[in-house]
Design a protein around this nucleic acid. Structure first.
Lengths: 208, 208
DNA sequence: GTCTATACTAGGATAGAC
DNA sequence: GTCTATCCTAGTATAGAC
């Protein structure tokens, strides 16, 4: 794509967010630079500043788009919850969601850690808050089913599953796992296993 | 500490590693710069290059020292394993080790992810390989007790516990948890709970 | 063995031309 | 709305003085 000279991008802002997503996916949040994104999109290094005041603003817009996509990914594997779900079924569903979340973070280089990061929280971006809430709303109902309606326990369960996902993703990124599990699906399976273990524990605690 | 002029450090190399450990602890691996470490130690920005050829070499030396300290931390909470251990006891001991590992990574900003990272693996540093092996040697026996002697399952168990630790540590670092659990001990408790759940699952799988 | 000075790279951010 | 040009900051690494 892209020809030369007098670039007339219909929508540079969106193109920049897209480029930022790709860069974060390839090299992680820390490697996101405005200059590199501009280079990828094919504009000058100053151009992005017409759309984003500074690097954190670009990162926040990227996080919003990521949250939208994450919500969509999770909804793909989570049921609508109009009909009740057996609690053993709910355990399996949370494990499936954890696996999906794992694949997402591996493929995108980030997830809820970016969306809810302190770094961006300081910006008070309403779109970001809204998009982050939507992600959690997708996860909570099934977790609540596992914990028999205990909201605090449900959040704790989600947190533990998310932590497992990020931990495995981190080990994969740094190369700790490379002598064993190459694919994202393998890693997602491990996380699903952990997610299942902790969900069963949560459920049993709830039954006490 | 440190006075002015004609710095005569008995051992600048060790001081640099110490400074690097402190910097990694405060700001993470990505923020480690030779210049900043030199500044902290109180020498010029060129001085470190008399002891380390480049940034990765300093990072590797830092990782070696970290591995030594990690091994010591783990040995503090792990039994000598001269006498046999009941398998339920072994589950608890792995959970305790996971908690200790979690506190270590939070306090040091890194752990096995750095020690076994691809970035450093390319250097083929014998000291680092040796030090990394020592960490694993500290963890394996108890895990093997849980898995009734299945070595592959034991490594998988350790990996999952390590992943949980890094995941929670990452969520804490990014600020995702700040609305809930401030202290390292709280986080370590969560990881211990996950570690216990996965250890029980591992044990039950081994009994099948 | 450390210091000073320097060359080079890369990114953040702004000003003014078009 | 994008480009060119520019200034600043910060880091890696090397050379030569002391």
């Amino acid at each position: 794509m892209a020809s030369r000279s007098t670039y007339h991008h219909g929508n540079l802002r969106a193109a920049l967010v897209e480029g930022a997503l790709a860069l974060v996916a390839e090299r992680g949040i820390g490697a996101l630079s405005v200059a590199e994104v501009a280079r990828r999109v094919g504009v000058s290094s100053g151009a992005p500043y017409r759309h984003f005041a500074h690097r954190p603003a670009l990162l926040a817009a990227t996080a919003v788009e990521m949250a939208h996509r994450l919500t969509a990914s999770l909804r793909d594997v989570l049921p609508e919850l109009h009909e009740p779900l057996g609690d053993l079924d709910a355990v399996d569903v949370t494990a499936r969601a954890a696996a999906a979340y794992t694949r997402f973070t591996i493929e995108h280089g980030a997830g809820l850690d970016l969306i809810f990061s302190d770094e961006l929280h300081g910006l008070d971006d309403r779109d970001l808050l809204e998009a982050g809430r939507a992600v959690m709303d997708a996860l909570v109902p099934t977790a609540m089913t596992v914990t028999h309606g205990d909201a605090r326990a449900a959040l704790r369960l989600i947190e533990r599953q998310i932590a497992a996902a990020h931990g495995y993703a981190a080990l994969l990124r740094t190369g700790f796992l490379d002598r064993r599990h190459p694919t994202a699906d393998d890693v997602a399976d491990h996380v699903a296993a952990i997610a299942r273990s902790v969900a069963l524990t949560s459920r049993d605690d709830a039954l006490t």
